[in-house]
Write a protein that binds this DNA or RNA. Structure first.
Lengths: 251, 251
DNA sequence: CGCGATTTTGATCAATGTCAAAGGTGGTGG
DNA sequence: CCACCACCTTTGACATTGATCAAAATCGCG
């Protein structure tokens, strides 16, 4: 499995030093209350790019806080097709389902080397009961993910291939840029392949490739070998029906 | 606006008599604790088929518990296309977003006459703070909706039109059947049009029509003028890649 | 340097969209 | 109870997007 991200994933020494805490479920706990979660979590885990965090159809004993790296959520169909449901970035809370003991309804694969911290599933309900702020925070995160999924449905269901691709690139760009910034002068690393884009958008990799070339030829955007260059934001947003203002950046 | 549902929507005299309480967010409150929500809600509302519960882009002062009737969640695109995000049934909690004061990211239209009960948005966070069971319940409902959305993404992104339609019909059938039953001998009222199906699945109404006819000709299913007849469940499930066992019926 | 994974290219074809017009249906008002 | 009308469904001809198959070129890690 190639597609490595040359930087080693970062795991903080303790929750107090967790740089993305305000993005995670733990944001709900301020100051010394952080120890609640600190004593609760059962550890951290580092996974290499290409590995599987959890599999569709299996049950697990943990929940995951994504600390570093990119993860793709997906499903496999009888036809053999892989549908990517979401690209998720650090801060995401993974594995929560209405019934915690149910088998996972989707799988999660690491697009880069990844660091997660682990919460025990079994006692999670009692954690929520004891610390309602966490339940409220969780509801908000779930609601945000829901909006994300609605965006995705809209993109796949309502836009032709060219707009679909433009929209996805802009969405990833804006998420990475806003939360994790590091603007390499409009050049951004997206650890995904053209095939991943195809599987997310309900297209074939061949067609994605063709369209990326027209987008490049038209001077809108360049995406090659994991590097994204936005050449003409305004035009690209227009072809992707992307409204930067519509995204609420306060979760 | 035609497409009426001849039965008048049911609104219970009080929460204790709410027949679908166990499907709603209020399920979290047992016995006398029901009064918490009872004093909290600000009333009920009845809307005719074809009317709008809330609009994309607008802000509202209430949240909604769907008591009776069908609602479609949707978005409109600059192209004029309408994307239906979900068909929602009684028990759903509508309007919740990560920031309650943000404008709604999607609209909600009534497919039948509808009854909702209203919660004030402003004081909702304090309600959750005071009654953590509600926050936990909300998180679960949101998680369930997320799975629903993932199903939808998968359907639209990964299946050809015929399978997409078969899958949607089976999903609606199984939801109605399980939660609200009343099996009219395998004939079921779905208050949606072929155009609604098209807008949900990213197809055109003309194409949906064509395929419905082949499904009928093949003896799999009949859907006409809002009436659904499953003729060959097994075959239909096969063409729709629909796994009845995969749905967890315990929320 | 070499190999597996990715990107690119070209030819062909099936699935789905578009446009336009006719035929049904059920609710509503006379 | 009938007739009308808006909305929904059906039909047909045609256009186009995007899929399929196969092979060559390129990239980047080891």
């Amino acid at each position: 499995m190639p597609r490595r991200f040359n930087r080693a994933p970062v795991v903080p020494p303790d929750c107090g030093h967790c740089r993305i805490r305000k993005l995670t479920i733990c944001q709900a706990l301020q100051g010394k209350r952080l120890s609640i979660v600190e004593t609760y979590k059962t550890g951290d885990r580092i996974l290499p790019a290409g590995s599987v965090l959890y599999q569709e159809g299996q049950s697990y004993g943990e929940l995951y806080n994504l600390l570093d790296g990119w993860v793709a959520l997906h499903r496999f169909l009888p036809s053999g097709r892989r549908q990517i449901l979401d690209f998720v970035l650090p801060g995401a809370f993974l594995g929560y389902q209405p019934n915690l003991s149910d088998p996972m309804q989707h799988g999660a694969e690491c697009l880069t080397d990844v660091a997660v911290c682990l919460f025990p599933r079994e006692s999670f309900p009692s954690l929520l009961d004891k610390h309602p702020e966490l339940a409220v925070r969780l509801a908000r995160l779930q609601a945000r993910d829901g909006i994300c999924a609605h965006d995705h449905i809209t993109n796949v269901g309502s836009r032709p291939a060219r707009a679909r691709i433009a929209h996805l690139l802009l969405e990833l760009y804006s998420r990475v840029h806003h939360w994790y910034s590091a603007a390499d002068g409009d050049a951004l690393r997206l650890p995904i392949t053209q095939n991943d884009i195809a599987d997310a958008l309900g297209l074939t990799d061949v067609h994605v490739n063709t369209i990326l070339q027209t987008l490049r030829a038209d001077g809108l955007v360049e995406f090659r070998n994991g590097w994204l260059h936005i050449l003409d934001f305004v035009q690209l947003a227009a072809t992707g029906e992307f409204d930067p203002g519509a995204i609420s950046h306060s979760y």
